[in-house]
Design a protein around this nucleic acid. Structure first.
Length: 771
DNA sequence: CAGCTATGCGCC
DNA sequence: AAAGGGCGCATAGCTG
């Protein structure tokens, strides 16, 4: 896709931004108001291109005859490799149109092939463009001849070409994915920016003048101006590939030197094969039951009004106090009515008007759920009730209607397969990974196609199992091998109880689980689980204690026992931190890296440039001067910082140093953050690898394909799919089986999945025996 | 008006 | 003294 973005061009064309820059809001208007007429803006574009890119006119070509395209494709086939990039009218591969595409292969000029440009004056289609049929025929030859296709954010272009041209391509290289594997912390996301940084080494780019461009969709840009830009994109995509590939080619010495062999394995065997699977999922989409959605909407909107009314009734009750505040604070931020949705105004109400005291360990003027629950105040419940309903309506109910594709009544969300730095997926438009599960009503709006059933399969205890593998502990491994519950096993050890006494349910005489809850056992299990997950998330012991409603000492005691009984857990934690400290990164089971450079920061950094005893003369260029370091002061303040506990105390030390002209930078917080991340990143990242391997195995399975089975959504440790009702039984077996064996190459812990077959997501289970 | 941060909250 | 990993997205409210 077109990763190079013309800043003036609206977000609707900046497909890269959609995926790569989460802060960008999509503009609904195709042409924004900038106070100029369309023709003026286009005249501007023409002039800018003439002025800035005149010399590049001959560097790129525009293909407007079939013969020329055939010849270019001939050469791509001959070379066996080419870069490809599409231009579209917007971000939606199904609803927006392709405007043209560009190609580049070694030894040739990059070319642009216009398909759908429109004359901005007459609104008529511009002459001498190639038809979709011709393009399809030629692009198909790339696929038929296995030409290696170089792309950037390939999934988008692949989907555009599927829907708008009817050709099914597979990327050989995706520069976006490659960049994520090479440095998931890279601040630049766009093709153009990455190219400038790594290929041009930050030298000036002739094409960077594009600030001058006005907001306009690409189909309105005159071909004679636009082709230079579009063609350039393909060339830039290729050049970035040339730079990146040396690090991800296992036969290249740079790949070995930089310790990227395992990373390249993740690239070639996990991430790249996943792209088409993800494109398939986005294309499949998931059906929304509109009638049901309308019922939900009505129900919750009514509820919202009720909750709102309750809040304002309380405002009336306290109107004296509120009015009193308004009088004393004429410049207050309260509107004529207190806005229940404004955290600022709620804070004024609670802390200034009602005189509530800050809740311990919470922001001083916080109005979050924890704070509100801790206050004994009748407003709080009303606010929480309102928020709960408002969240459901705005984020999940009303939002959904705007996203449904009118052509098929489905939502086709965008999955970012490297959305999280750990390697996890993210999802947007809508985010299918945070649909409420507690409130089953919302999930039920998602249904299978007619004649189909939904099938959701989730790994049971995926993260603890990954942790077990990484600990390499026989005791833990055996618990799983013997079909025992790890949390109960750990609890048994920590609380000196038998394993059976730490189970959530009583067993019958045959040792089978009954549905009778063992209240005490459940409690032991929960405590052990919380501690273990606390370790896994790098959570502090005080915070774990709080969650368990117990004292810090008690929680520490339990943790000590767990560490003593399962020393591998503690060792894993230490090994992970040591790995990060030595190398600056941690790795997953499959070798994906999570770089944590902050862990290598010095605890304190000193700046003596303004120190009183610094004799450095910045204007003295004659004599070589060494940077001034006052080792004595450094020592003194390091000790003082280490001795002072708490933010306030540390600030005092810093202030004291500042009085001597010494600036101290305290990196303690960053280091602690990184230490927490390094344990979690290994577990979360390995689990992500595992789910991705399963997606590839399941998504490419011939039998499942023949049975009409389709993957729909990944939710971290869970895959949602659908299949025809009559094939559900077989699909269920195969689905679960493939998922459970997908990670066998590096995961010896027995893996099992819970599969549910329903009409609606989270709906009633369909008994397959009855079919 | 667009773009940004802060705050809050849904999920795994 | 305090200590929760990873996301997307809503509204409020500020800024240029």
């Amino acid at each position: 896709m077109d990763l190079f973005t013309i800043p003036g061009i609206p977000a609707t064309r900046q497909d890269d931004k959609n995926i790569l820059n989460k802060t960008v809001k999509k503009t609904k208007k195709v042409v924004a108001k900038v106070g100029k007429s369309l023709s003026e803006r286009i005249a501007n574009i023409k002039r800018s291109v003439e002025e800035n890119l005149g010399e590049y006119k001959d560097k790129y070509d525009c293909i407007r005859e079939e013969n020329d395209l055939v010849k270019y494709i001939d050469l791509c086939v001959e070379k066996g490799i080419c870069a490809i990039d599409t231009e579209t009218t917007g971000l939606n591969p199904m609803l927006d149109d392709i405007v043209g595409f560009s190609l580049y292969t070694l030894g040739l000029k990059a070319v642009y092939i216009p398909i759908n440009h429109i004359d901005y004056i007459t609104n008529a289609k511009v002459n001498n463009q190639l038809s979709k049929e011709i393009c399809k025929k030629q692009l198909q030859r790339l696929a038929n001849n296995n030409v290696k296709l170089i792309m950037f954010n390939a999934k988008f272009d692949i989907r555009v070409l599927r829907h708008q041209i009817g050709v099914y391509l597979t990327a050989y290289w995706d520069g976006y994915i490659a960049q994520k594997l090479l440095n998931e912390n890279e601040p630049e996301n766009g093709l153009k920016a990455l190219h400038k940084k790594y290929v041009l080494k930050n030298e000036k780019d002739a094409f960077a003048f594009s600030d001058l461009f006005e907001k306009i969709t690409f189909n309105l840009v005159p071909i004679n101006s636009g082709y230079i830009y579009a063609a350039r994109d393909a060339e830039v995509t290729y050049e970035l590939y040339t730079y990146q590939k040396q690090f991800l080619d296992p036969s290249n010495s740079k790949c070995i030197e930089k310790d990227l062999l395992e990373v390249s394995n993740v690239f070639w065997n996990i991430e790249m094969p996943l792209i088409n699977i993800v494109a398939d999922m986005e294309d499949s989409g998931i059906k929304v039951d509109l009638d049901y959605l309308n019922i939900l909407s009505e129900k919750y909107n009514k509820l919202l009004l009720e909750k709102e009314a309750e809040f304002y009734k309380l405002c009336d009750k306290y109107s004296n106090k509120i009015e009193d505040y308004r009088r004393k604070n004429p410049n207050n931020k309260l509107g004529s009515m207190i806005n229940i949705a404004s955290s600022t105004q709620i804070a004024i109400l609670l802390y200034d008007i009602l005189g509530e005291k800050p809740v311990p360990r919470q922001p001083s003027r916080g109005t979050g759920e924890e704070v509100l629950k801790a206050m004994n105040n009748e407003f709080c419940q009303a606010i929480l009730d309102y928020r709960e309903v408002a969240k459901l309506i705005t984020t999940y109910i009303d939002k959904m209607r705007n996203i449904i594709n009118p052509e098929d009544g489905k939502v086709h969300c965008v999955f970012n397969q490297y959305g999280a730095a750990t390697g996890r997926f993210s999802s947007q438009d809508p985010n299918m990974q945070n649909i409420p599960s507690h409130n089953k009503e919302i999930r039920k709006m998602f249904v299978a196609d007619d004649g189909y059933v939904l099938m959701s399969s989730d790994y049971s205890q995926q993260e603890p199992k990954v942790m077990t593998q990484m600990c390499g502990d026989e005791k833990m491994l055996n618990a799983y091998r013997n079909g025992r519950d790890l949390y109960s096993e750990i609890a048994s050890l920590a609380f000196n109880r038998t394993y059976e006494d730490c189970l959530e349910f009583y067993l019958d005489e045959n040792g089978n689980k009954t549905d009778k809850t063992n209240k005490e056992g459940k409690e032991y299990r929960t405590q052990a689980k919380s501690i273990l997950l606390g370790i896994l998330y790098g959570r502090g012991i005080a915070s774990v204690a709080e969650q368990l409603h117990t004292t810090k000492e008690k929680a520490q005691q339990i943790q000590d026992k767990i560490f003593k009984g399962f020393p591998a857990i503690q060792k894993f934690e230490e090994d992970s931190k040591n790995m990060a400290k030595e190398k600056g990164f941690v790795t997953t089971l499959w070798g994906r890296k999570r770089r944590l450079p902050n862990i290598q920061l010095p605890l304190y950094e000193f700046d003596f440039s303004n120190a009183k005893n610094n004799n450095f003369n910045p204007l003295d260029f004659e004599n070589e001067q060494e940077e001034f370091i006052d080792y004595e002061a450094m020592d003194k303040y390091t000790r003082m910082m280490n001795r002072s506990y708490g933010r306030v105390a540390k600030e005092q030390v810093k202030a004291k140093a500042r009085a001597e002209g010494i600036e101290i930078k305290d990196n303690g917080g960053y280091i602690a953050d990184a230490e927490r991340q390094c344990v979690n990143a290994r577990i979360q990242g390995s689990a992500a690898d595992m789910t991705k391997k399963a997606m590839i195995l399941v998504g490419n399975d011939k039998e499942l394909k023949e049975l009409g089975f389709k993957l729909l959504i990944p939710v971290h440790d869970e895959l949602i799919a659908q299949c025809p009702l009559e094939n559900a039984k077989r699909c269920k077996e195969r689905f679960a089986n493939l998922m459970s064996i997908a990670a066998k190459d590096r995961l010896q812990v027995p893996i099992s999945c819970d599969v549910e077959v329903t009409r609606a997501w989270y709906g009633d289970e369909i008994e397959l025996e009855e079919i």
